Amino acid sequence: MKLSAPIFQLKRRAKLLVRKNSVPLHEALDQIAREEGFARWSLLSSRIAAGSLSKTVLSRLNDGDLLLVAGRPGHGKTTLGLQLLLDAARDGRKAIFFTLEFTEQQARKHIRSLDEGYQDLGDALEIVTSNEISADYIIRHLSASDRGTVAVIDYLQILDQQRSKPALSDQVLALRDFARKTGVVLGFISQIDRSFDPAIRPLPDIRDIRLPNLVDLGLFTKACFLHNGEAQLQDIT
Rank of each mutant, 00 (worst) to 15 (best):
D208N: 15
L175V: 08
T99F: 03
F102D: 15
R60M: 08
R163M: 11
S22D: 15
L156N: 00
L16T: 13
R163W: 03
N131E: 13
L121D: 14
D193I: 06
L233S: 11
R72M: 13
N131C: 07
I236K: 05
L61H: 06
L10V: 02
Q171C: 03
L173Y: 14
A167R: 12
N21W: 09
G92M: 11
R163H: 12
T237E: 10
D120V: 13
L80P: 01
D160H: 06
D30K: 05
Q9D: 14
D30W: 09
A89P: 04
A5S: 13
L61V: 11
I192M: 04
F38R: 09
Q234M: 13
A135L: 08
R47P: 00
H141D: 12
R140W: 06
F188K: 03
L80E: 06
V184Y: 00
L66Y: 05
P212I: 02
S190Q: 09
P24E: 12
T78I: 04
I200D: 12
K20G: 07
T129R: 09
D30C: 05
W41F: 14
A174D: 06
K109N: 14
G183N: 01
D205E: 12
P166T: 02
A144Y: 08
G218D: 13
F8K: 13
S22A: 15
A107Y: 09
